[in-house]
Design a protein around this nucleic acid. Sequence first.
DNA 1: CCTGGGCATTGATCCATGATAAGAAAGTTT
DNA 2: AAACTTTCTTATCATGGATCAATGCCCAGG
Lengths: 194, 194
Amino acid sequence: MKNFTKYLKTKAQVSEENFELLIKKVTVKKIAKGTVILRPEEVCKFSFFVEKGLLRSYTINTSGKEHILQFGSENWIVADRSSAFFNEPSELFIDAIEDSEVVLIGADFIEQASEISQYFRKYNQIALQNHIRHQQKRINLLLSASAETRYMNFIQLYPDLISRVPQWMIASYLGITPESLSRVRKEMAKKPLK
Amino acid sequence: MKNFTKYLKTKAQVSEENFELLIKKVTVKKIAKGTVILRPEEVCKFSFFVEKGLLRSYTINTSGKEHILQFGSENWIVADRSSAFFNEPSELFIDAIEDSEVVLIGADFIEQASEISQYFRKYNQIALQNHIRHQQKRINLLLSASAETRYMNFIQLYPDLISRVPQWMIASYLGITPESLSRVRKEMAKKPLK
DNA sequence: CCTGGGCATTGATCCATGATAAGAAAGTTT
DNA sequence: AAACTTTCTTATCATGGATCAATGCCCAGG
């Protein structure tokens, strides 16, 4: 719980006193690589704070293809926000790419923490706004940029993930096939100019 | 201000008393078709509640191409949320597609309304979550669907906009060229099976 | 140490969408 | 209603990325 503690105390500026109170509301869980922890039709009862490891959220369309919406490594929160907030069935899968350790955060936790601490409420608000900003950038990129540009942007944004995530998943995140990504990389290797 | 009043009183459930208080904080403005009301580098000081008419937000990339992020007709709020919330320079344009009438909502309005009314705070929260949900669907669609599918989805989602928005703007929203959209429509006309 | 299953690469081919250009339609201005 | 201007369509050609198939690679498990 080291990371989660830091998150609460430092980022969300929760006082020692409140911390003791809140920490009781969450549980830690080990998730083996490959384990699915949320699937379509289920309601997303928890947000998953990644203490250690790597999660992903994704959809599978009617023709069986996966499309990755988000990766979450240490200190990130992965969830189907809509499902959790509106208490409606999810359309997403969430599973573990690596053996992971996650902190389960229920809706009640968020509410209570927001009640208790103005800072937490504020921080939560910021997280939402960041999410929106991030999604907007991604939409804009998908609208305007080539596979190569999108890949370069990904490298910039998530340099650490490049080595941890299999290439075909990165392709899925970018909205291209693994074959295409392989070719893009080959091209990029030729003209090395940074 | 009819729509905005209704929005505050009905949707955000603001009491008559608070309404009188809050309404003083906003101004109404007429925006002529084509007028740009936000451009990159500027900070988005206001969110624009569309009382009447039609706005759009979009980016222009280095090669001069527009990419539309959002349309907003009556009762929608258009803004660069990130810029407004974080008080940082925007990367978006916002302009009017039709002669419009908008209510200018400053950050102070949001704050004050949230202080005054729990309902408003809650409603604002819901709006944020809806925004995230909507963006997520769009990302998923961009990752997975063909031009035709995306267009059909657009029709479903915004049937009213089809007639109000020029076709090339819809193409821009979908991330394809106007020519492609024209082709897609032609194809769809052939096989009419609704 | 072999073996089998996931992953990455490569080549061949196909296809949806882009680019360009030109005209037809529709809308606006004078 | 004539003269523009903007939007939409159509046609041709070019291309990025998809699909299909084969091969090699790695490494985890027997």
